[in-house]
Simulated scan of single mutants.
Amino acid sequence: MIRLLIADDHPIVRDGLSGMFAAEPGFEVVGQAGDGAEAVRMAETLRPDVILMDLQMPDMNGLTAITELAERGITSRVLVLTTYDTDGYVVPAIEAGATGYLLKDAPRDDLLRAVQAAAEGKSVLAPSVANTLMNHVRTPPTPDILSPRELEVLQAVAAGNTNREIAAHLFISEATVKTHLLNIYAKLTAPDRASAVAKAFKLGLL
């Protein structure tokens, strides 16, 4: 019996997945979480075999939740189930410890097999996700990937400044700051500010 925790901020999605797995022999849905923080709390208590984790959720996103699970020593396998297959989402999720990565348009049978495989410790990737990872490996980011202005913005972010404070300091508009941040996220394959700063430190940019 595979014990499953479903984490998604949409109740209809959670209920649909829960009903699907509950109707299948060999699966037991032990809980549903509406955000990453709740998923971590429930995983710590319930210790499910597999967590189906959405990435974009309020309060604590899926990527942060995956990292938190690993830091707490929770051994549940995390299978990401999301609508995003760009390397800005895929690479950080895999690096954080996700066992697999599927998209929400996956056929029902594929999802059932993926959860089974994840429970066994096997990696499962949607075809487009596998291609994304291959392309990322073939073209890794280089230390000079950011422009001088993007580095200035990222340094200000790392120092804890808001977009408004960065704009005032650099004498640019908040809209321009946001544009620079979007470019930084894309170049560093990072989904948010914290991930971009962490990736920049890892690459020696900061």
Rank of each mutant, 00 (worst) to 15 (best):
M1W: 06
L5Y: 04
A7W: 04
H10S: 01
V13P: 04
G16W: 12
G19A: 02
M20W: 05
F21D: 01
F21H: 02
F21A: 05
A22G: 04
A22Y: 03
A22K: 09
A23W: 06
A23P: 09
E24A: 12
P25F: 09
P25Q: 13
G26C: 07
V29M: 06
V30M: 06
Q32Y: 08
A33G: 07
G34W: 03
E38W: 08
E38P: 02
E38K: 01
A39N: 04
A39L: 03
V40E: 08
V40L: 02
R41P: 05
R41S: 10
R41L: 10
M42D: 04
M42K: 14
A43M: 00
A43W: 02
T45I: 10
R47C: 09
V50E: 05
V50G: 01
I51Y: 05
L52I: 10
L52A: 02
M53D: 08
D54V: 11
D54N: 09
D54S: 04
L55K: 01
Q56E: 14
Q56H: 14
P58G: 13
P58Y: 12
P58I: 12
D59E: 15
L63C: 10
I66W: 14
I66P: 13
T67R: 15
E68P: 06
L69A: 10
E71L: 15
R72S: 13
I74Q: 09
I74F: 09
R77K: 14
R77T: 03
V78L: 07
L79E: 00
L81G: 05
L81C: 04
L81Y: 12
L81R: 09
T82Y: 06
T82E: 03
T83F: 12
Y84L: 10
D85N: 11
D85F: 00
T86S: 15
T86F: 09
T86N: 14
D87T: 11
G88P: 15
G88H: 13
G88L: 14
V90Y: 01
V90R: 01
P92W: 06
P92E: 01
P92H: 00
A93D: 00
I94L: 01
